[in-house]
């Protein structure tokens, strides 16, 4: 780790003022940042510990329906919150399938969205060609080991995936990420928060230097929702693919569907074409569901080693829909 100076933040105002200086980094749970420091992925000169900022670790119902989750709420506390379990099971399930119980006691929901790809070349202890580590150095994975890389939205500059589980649920839920910044805050739709590699392959998300996530807002309750994570072992592992489904139903008929896939692109991948076709479908009609899902795979592009992920992703989407339909409303 390169040396840094450290300070604990007491107020939001001083946090966003100090964070705006280049070379500053926020520390929340530390479960990503510490590994970046160890691997040389980040080397900030100043660390601003935001973990004790007041009022950012609360979960509260919003006046018009919906829920506001403070960015510093620990993952275990979000997932096991009564209202999240009852009204947003897709988010609770996504979180409980992420990382380990100990890590979830440290990790925050805001920090989770800022995790970087698990691409092994990116996380290597020795520097390998990787445009996300050093822009212009190339992509080792493109002609290397890429069996778990992207099937959507990749470019030859970077074929990695975003590994967050909660982000997939938030994208399917149409959640909003609320930020504060010295030049004013914003509200960012969760599905537009992460960046594809087509413009700036080194960037992961739309946040500016010093922009602080303060909360995540969920729209109206989505009790008919579910998350499905496919991985190489049963527990404590990143996804090969995952799927989040959010349904509104009239009896057995799907009125509206929100669908997103995880670990298939550098952002949670919304299946918009499929969602359109699903409206009006009978949830018991597997063929209709599969045909609808198929619509969103016209743009899928496999790499040398990962064509299997296309089939896996279609099946995961189908099963997530079926699981969501079985949830009590």
């Amino acid at each position: 780790m390169t040396p840094f100076v450290y300070a604990r933040a007491d107020s939001l105002g001083e946090t966003i003022a100090a964070g705006a200086a280049p070379d500053s980094a926020f520390l929340a749970g530390g479960t990503e940042l510490l590994n970046w420091l160890r691997l040389g992925i980040a080397g900030p000169a100043r660390i601003i510990d935001i973990s004790r900022l007041d009022g950012l670790d609360q979960i509260e119902a919003l006046p018009g329906g919906g829920l506001r989750i403070g960015a510093l709420t620990h993952l275990n506390d979000v997932a096991q919150h009564e209202l999240v379990m009852r009204d947003y099971p897709v988010l609770s399930q996504a979180i409980l399938n992420a990382a380990s119980p100990q890590l979830r006691n440290l990790a925050t929901i805001g920090g989770n969205l800022l995790q970087k790809t698990r691409c092994a070349y990116f996380r290597a202890e020795e520097q390998l060609p990787c445009n996300k580590r050093r822009l212009g150095s190339g992509c080792s994975a493109l002609h290397g080991i890429n069996d778990n890389h992207a099937i959507f939205g990749w470019t030859e500059d970077c074929i990695a995936t975003q590994p967050s589980d909660p982000a997939v649920a938030l994208a399917a839920l149409d959640a909003v990420i609320v930020t504060a910044h010295r030049s004013g805050g914003r509200r960012i739709p969760a599905a537009e928060f992460h960046l594809l590699p087509d413009t700036r392959p080194e960037a992961d998300n739309v946040l500016q230097q010093g922009e602080l996530i303060t909360a995540i807002e969920l729209p109206a309750p989505a009790p008919r929702s579910a998350y499905l994570k496919v991985r190489e072992r049963e527990s404590y592992e990143y996804a090969i693919v995952s799927a989040a489904a959010v349904l509104e139903m009239d009896g057995r008929t799907i009125r509206r569907a929100g669908l997103a896939l995880g670990s298939v692109a550098l952002r949670p991948w919304r299946l918009s074409a499929a969602e359109e076709r699903l409206a009006g479908a009978d949830v018991g009609d597997r063929e209709a569901l599969s045909t609808a899902i198929e619509q969103s795979f016209a743009e899928a592009r496999p790499l040398l080693q990962n064509a299997y992920k296309i089939e896996l992703a279609k099946t995961a989407a189908l099963r997530a829909i079926e699981r969501a339909a079985r949830m009590p409303s």
Partner: peptide, 21 residues
């Protein structure tokens, strides 16, 4: 998980925490 300790009663990975925090 070999470094698991309790911090204010909750289990956490001690290797992921800056002592100063």
């Amino acid at each position: 998980g070999a470094c698991t300790v309790h911090l204010d009663g909750r289990r956490v990975n001690a290797c992921m925490i800056l002592a100063v925090s």
